[in-house]
Simulated scan of single mutants.
Amino acid sequence: MHPAASVIFFTTASGAGYGILVLLGILVPLGYLPTEPWFGAVTLLLALGLVSAGLLSSTFHLHHPERAWRALSQWRSSWLSREGVAAIVTYGPALLFAFGWIVYGNSIGGWALWGAVAAIMALVTIYSTAMIYASLRTIRQWHHRLVPLVYLTLGLASGAIWLTAISSSFGITNDLVVAVALIFILAGAVIKFIYWSSIDQSVSQSDAGTATGLGHIGTVKQFEAPHTEDNWVMKEMGFQIARKHALKLRKIVGLLAFFIPFICLLGALMDVAPVLAMSWIAALSASIGIVVERWLFFAEAQHVVGLFYGHDHS
């Protein structure tokens, strides 16, 4: 599949924003993060800003962005619609939690309940985003049980890393948030590498015979290309990346998204390196790494329609 910049930005930015929102909704009422209104204003503005920017960018991928609202009506059968509904619903409890925290200076009691609801809805939204791709049987690399876990762990990891960076900028060091970030970075790395290993070892159940419905006759081979030049389907769904380039990009993801952030935050947690510098290096490295990971997620996807154009899906 052709990686669309708008969708890559949407999934990475909103994932980090929702990750921050989950941590704030849970840890602030429990007293593990500062409860001062100014801290709430800064962190919630970052979280909701990332979410809003990501959602807005996703509409750029549509041929008619002005019709995006119509997708919300198909929530009974479409994960895209469910994601949109969940994203909109999340704003309600998130803004109520922000109102109580920032305006009234109260993030416990009834206001804390809105924080918990916002955290749950943030997780639901990330899951719904992942299921847009995981539900597509026509793309082997996406129709995989680990795709939702990848999205959830990377969203929470990036959220925890950015929350650490913002907190340290104000002289606030929270070992719990750093530890949470380390856990999700490690979990994300393990799940992602298992996912890569799985899609490398799996074999496509489709071939030219199943694609044309002529497989019962015998081996089906393409006699001639269906088009003399690339069409929209070939450009968007027939995009392919060389195996050697994919392997290089996977190493870059492992380095930037997982190794560097983990080492930086581990050093900060063990007081062998300055928290401020290490947390910002970790945040920038992880963000770049997750962008590469998401680009590769789309680039490695092979739609079965490519079989009509002679693409090998083995």
Rank of each mutant, 00 (worst) to 15 (best):
G254L: 06
I288Y: 04
V22Q: 11
V103E: 09
H313G: 07
S197C: 01
V275N: 06
S314W: 02
K192V: 11
T138C: 06
G25W: 04
L186N: 00
T173P: 04
I88R: 09
M237W: 15
E66A: 04
T11W: 03
T90Q: 13
I217Y: 11
H61F: 08
I260K: 15
S167V: 00
V291L: 11
G31P: 10
M278I: 08
S14W: 02
T125A: 05
I281D: 02
H61V: 14
L72I: 03
V124A: 12
V7I: 14
L55I: 02
G17L: 05
H227Y: 14
L284K: 02
Y18K: 06
T43Q: 11
L21V: 01
V190A: 06
I161A: 13
Q141S: 14
V89D: 02
L276D: 14
G159K: 05
F60K: 12
A41T: 12
V291I: 13
L152V: 06
I108P: 00
G215I: 15
I88P: 03
G110Q: 13
H64W: 11
V7M: 11
D230I: 03
G31L: 10
A160S: 14
Q205S: 05
F10E: 09
A16E: 02
D207G: 03
A242F: 02
L154I: 08
G171Y: 03
Y127M: 11
H2R: 09
I161Q: 12
L214Q: 09
F262G: 07
